[in-house]
Design a binder for these strands. Structure first.
Length: 229
DNA sequence: TTGTGTTTTATTGCCTCC
DNA sequence: GGAGGCAATAAAACACAA
């Protein structure tokens, strides 16, 4: 992965996690803006004669053998103490500084790789959470629909119950007259449902029965109800 | 062959630690 | 204050499509 790709992923990451990663952290204390370096043409060289420099050497790619050896060493220990550096350098026929530089760059690559892996892990966790959220939202919608249907049903049933009760009263009045002893206890109040009537159908139907007046013709009412069931 | 993008090697400037 | 680490960057080396 190149730098642009990493930058793109980091941008995406900060968009996904604006709270945590969306802001560029302030520069470390006392850090001045870096001056842009200028470097003379002509490849590797340290004109000021820094010890261990590669004066006059053309930048060269390390051989597969050298890289393999360096990788092995990096695998066992990411840091390079100077004794090991010198030993490795002489084993590989390289300048100790080259070995140090190689380790430095290798650590940088390793760090980038780690970041990529961490990013991938977090991204897949995030994606799973999004999918889970979608499922839960669909479930909520479904349950809301079911609740609406149940409410409609309850409303229908309560209307039917009232209607049945009314017919029942009318029937009794027609046959026995208003002074029939059997009807003295029937309430003339309209059937009222308990406040907050809403919820489990079975329990609420039981409640409705409790609120029905004494001596009501439950059987007839139930017949009425059955038309609506 | 050449233009362009990527990877590797190396440098620079700053920081921390002893 | 010097050694060593790191981030940023330059530039050579390399890969590859057109």
């Amino acid at each position: 992965m190149n730098r642009n790709q990493i930058d793109d992923e980091m941008t995406l990451f900060s968009q996904l996690h604006p709270g945590d990663y969306g802001q560029i952290p302030p520069p470390p204390r006392g850090l001045k803006p870096r001056r842009r370096r200028r470097r003379g043409r002509g490849g590797v060289g340290e004109a000021d004669g820094v010890p261990g420099g590669l004066v006059g050497m053309k930048k060269r790619k390390l051989s597969d053998q050298q890289v393999m050896m360096l990788e092995q060493n990096f695998g066992s220990e990411h840091k390079l103490e100077s004794e090991r550096k010198d030993r490795l350098a002489s084993e590989l026929g390289l300048d100790p500084r080259q070995v140090a530089v190689w380790f430095q760059n290798r650590r940088a690559r390793w760090k980038n790789k780690k970041l990529e892996e961490e990013y991938s892990k977090l991204k897949s966790l995030h994606d799973s959470a999004i999918i889970e959220k979608c499922h839960l939202q669909a479930e909520v919608l479904k349950l809301k629909e079911q609740l609406g249907e149940a409410d409609k049903q309850i409303h229908k049933l309560s209307s039917a119950l009232e209607e049945g009760h009314r017919k029942c009263r009318e029937g009794h009045d027609g046959v026995n007259g208003s002074n029939s002893p059997s009807m003295t206890s029937i309430s003339t109040e309209p059937l009222s449902l308990p406040p907050g009537f809403r919820g489990d159908l079975a329990y609420e139907l039981d409640d409705m029965m409790l609120y029905m007046p004494e001596n009501s013709c439950s059987v007839q009412c139930m017949e009425w109800l059955s038309h609506y069931m």
